[in-house]
Every structure is written in structure tokens, then in C-alpha cells.
Amino acid sequence: MAAPDRLTTKDWLIRVAISTAVVAGIWGIGQGVQVGLIEYVQRIVLLCGINIILAVGLNLINGTTGQFSIGHAGFMAVGAYATAFCGVKLAPAVTAALGTGAIADGVVFNAALLVGALLAGVAGLAVGVPSLRLKGDYLAIVTLGFGEIIRLLFNNTKALGSATGYFGDNPAGLPPYTSFFWVYVWVVVVVLIVRNITFSQSGRSLIAIREDEIAAEAMATPTTRLKVTAFTVSAATAGIAGGLFAHMQSGIRPEDFKFEKSIDMIVMIIIGGLGSISGAVIGGIFLAVTLELMRDLQEYRLVLYALLLVVIMIVRPEGLLGTRELSPSMFKKKAGAK
């Protein structure tokens, strides 16, 4: 890769223009969604966004780095509780300064989300440092253990509502901050961050760790540091998803972050293809939409869901895209082959 060019003013202007266009685009679509869709469908669309963040974040550690975590629901819980709690505590101070309205809400929500991401990241670091010395199945089972311990801690914390869960001081629940706009702004942010890591120097080192850790170490790759970093970033993104989820639900409880949630995340990245960002995006959408469409099947739904997972693993273990990314050139190649 060529050395990064120094950015000129023009480059900066283009960046700002693109970002503004994207944000305006999301805002525009959000307005359309709010007017054009019934709330039930809106919820699914929000859930898709949250799933994308979860899947893309988890994919960084599970897919790209090949270090399997099956306890990410724990980090989602940390983010959810932290965001909800901070949001409730921050709101009075911010409304005192900025008054009520969309701007104040946005400030509170995003500040709280950042705290949530930070704390989830710290939790990720705390879990990652000791666990990432382990490999494969052992790492998986330790992350599962940590995920369960985190949930048990919330279950036994009175200030956060124990088993009843946390929904702020108002019985009507947490304020519904989670809108199409914020969810998808965060989707773009998370996808960009993960993408930039994946396609950077460190990203290639992460892939090297996945392919052969001992060989990577022999090439002087700081494997431990990189693995822990990837794990921390991944935990932080799960925290953001948790915060968005909390304010979509207007309340959270420890039961929302059971082992099954971690399995859901794994299914998302497996369907799309381990190691592919666009695959994770597709997987996240797929899971939200299918689980909703299958609701009419009642008790057969989860049986089919589990069966689907087994069949995918046997028939196409690399998922829809494998480690490839969805891009225009992919279709060109296919056309050329014909």
C-alpha cells in the first residue's frame, strides 16, 4: 500500500461534503420511514440497524481475527445499562443548559452512548487481557463464562433494578431516544471504524493471526496487543448496540442478555460469512427480518432456527460471502466468467 498522502484542503472539503451528504441522506430516509411505515415495521428496521452494529463488531474479533467469543451479550449488557443509567443522570443537567427538544435529547443520548461504549470497551479489555492467551474452544468457553458472570452481576445489583431490570426513574420507561437517524448514523460510524481497522496494516496482522497465530508471532506481529485491541473495539461496538437497544425498548433487564443473544449474534455473522463486513451487515438484517417473519410458526420457530444453523454449517460453513466483501467488482467477475 502506498504511503498515505497528506490531506489537502480539497480532500478535507470532499470528506466534509460526503459526510454531510450521508448524514442528510440518513435524516431524509429517516423522515420517510417515520411517515411511510407503520411502527411495527419501523421497529424491525431499527432492530436491523442494531443487529448490523452487533454483527459487524463481533465479526472483527470472531471473523477477522479468528478469536471466537460466544459471550458478547455481556458487553452488550454493559453498554445498555451504562447508556441507560448515564442518560437518566445526564438528562436534567443538559435540559437545564439546552432546554428540551431534539438537540438536547441528541446530546444526552450520544454522550450516554459514548459512555456505554467506553465502559463496554473497558469490560472487553478486562475480559480480553486474561482470556486472549487462550485459543479456540477454550477462549469461547471463557467468554461464555464472563458473559454469564456479567449478567449475574446485573441480576444482583439493586441500584440497577435486579431482575426487574432498569428503566430509569420514570415508570413509563427510558425516553425513546432511539430513532432511525441515530441508529443508522451509528451504523455508518461503526462500519467505517471496523472497515478502517480491517483494511489497515493492523487489520492484515489480525488476518495473519486468524490464519496462523504462531507463524504471525514468528513474523514479529504483536499478537497479544492486537488481539486485545480488536476484542476491546468489538466489545465497545456491542456496547453501542446495547445502548441503542435499551432506548428502543425503553427498559432493559438481565434476561435480555442471555447466552441466546450471543448465539443470535454468531448466527448473524455466520450467515453472512465469517470475516466479511458486508456479510455481517446482510446477516444482521437477515436475522431480524426472518425471526419476525417466522413468528407465525409459534413453537416451531426456534426448532427451525436451530436447524437452519446446523444445516448452514454443514452445507456452507463459510456463509453467504465467505471472507469476501460485497462490491461491484464481485458482480463484474461473475459476469466475466460467463
Binding site: V22, G32, V33, L37, V45, C48, I277, I285
Partner: peptide
């Protein structure tokens, strides 16, 4: 990556 993000949001739009 922007294209990816935008494409995915259009996809949602269609589903939605």
C-alpha cells in the same frame, strides 16, 4: 464503504 452502507440502507428500505 459508503456505498456499502448506503446500499444496505436501501435494502432495508425495500424490505421495510
Amino acid at each position: 464503504s459508503l456505498i456499502i452502507a448506503l446500499a444496505s440502507s436501501t435494502l432495508f428500505g425495500a424490505v421495510a
